[in-house]
């Protein structure tokens, strides 16, 4: 009997012998025939990773990326049939994969690419009208709590991850060394990136945890005295991230 455990191990490890009992029409062992399955698995998962991480692919080049994908897919085969989410372990993998240790920003670029893909497939939402905030009395604004769009992702980084993305995917200028916190949102169907001002990532995270705007503002200004509230709210409204608002304590 040829069990699926043996079959799976041999599929993922090309050095392992082909399981017994798999034969050609004459009943002979059939290693090249088994290799069709090995190849299907490796190529389809490598293609899925290439689709998921176009910037990493471009930064490393096709040959290097595909060889690295071969290592990744054997260490981290998918745990679900949803290929749209395959590659969640890529940032951690890149941090520990010795041949790319001289490219310390790769892991954060991979986090950004995952955020973009998650935003693409996340639930739809309707934003509040931008003028809603302007119409609030200052005290009400400080007490306002928000629900945020399901597509919202915040990727903080010590590296210019948005500039790297732009340079490789959209013909942007050569990246300058700087830290970039990026907000990914999806106003309609295409994910949109916004480089956040200083402290804004912390502010949005606090809003996402149901803190009133005033409390979140005070928290951020303790560590970022130059935090620009109106610029940050402009970013959030512009990216359709605020989807509802309530004033006062949680009900």
């Amino acid at each position: 009997m040829t069990g699926q455990a043996d079959f799976t191990q041999a599929l993922l490890d090309p050095k392992q012998a082909v399981p017994e009992g798999l034969v050609d029409p004459q009943g002979r062992p059939a290693p090249k025939r088994f290799d069709v399955y090995r190849n299907n698995v490796a190529v389809s998962l490598t293609d899925a990773l290439e689709t998921a991480f176009p910037v990493i692919h471009k930064l490393l080049g096709d040959d290097f990326f595909r060889a690295m994908a071969g290592v990744y897919l054997r260490a981290h085969p998918p745990s679900s049939a949803l290929m749209m989410y395959y590659g969640a372990a890529m940032p951690a993998f890149l941090r520990s994969f010795e041949p790319v240790s001289h490219l310390p920003y790769l892991a954060d670029v991979a986090r950004l690419e995952i955020a973009i893909r998650e935003a693409y497939h996340s639930a739809d939402s309707t934003p509040i009208a931008p003028e809603t905030l302007g119409a609030l009395a200052p005290n009400d604004l400080m007490q306002a709590r928000f629900t945020l769009a399901p597509a919202l992702r915040i990727v903080t980084s010590d590296w210019p991850i948005h500039a790297l993305w732009q340079f490789n995917m959209a013909g942007g200028p050569k990246p300058q060394m700087q830290a970039q916190d990026v907000m990914v949102a999806r106003p309609e169907f295409d994910p949109v990136q916004t480089v956040l001002p200083v402290g804004a990532a912390m502010f949005v995270t606090a809003l996402g945890q149901d803190e009133p705007l005033g409390t979140a503002f005070e928290r951020v200004t303790q560590t970022h005295s130059d935090f620009d509230l109106s610029a940050t709210l402009g970013c959030l409204l512009g990216a359709s991230v605020l989807t509802s608002l309530t004033i006062g304590p949680p009900t």
């Binding site: 079959f7 799976t8 599929l11 698995v41 899925a48 085969p77 998918p78 679900s80």
Partner: peptide
């Protein structure tokens, strides 16, 4: 197999 999805 064993929670590994092999995409083939």
């Amino acid at each position: 197999h064993d929670s590994h999805f092999l995409n083939d």
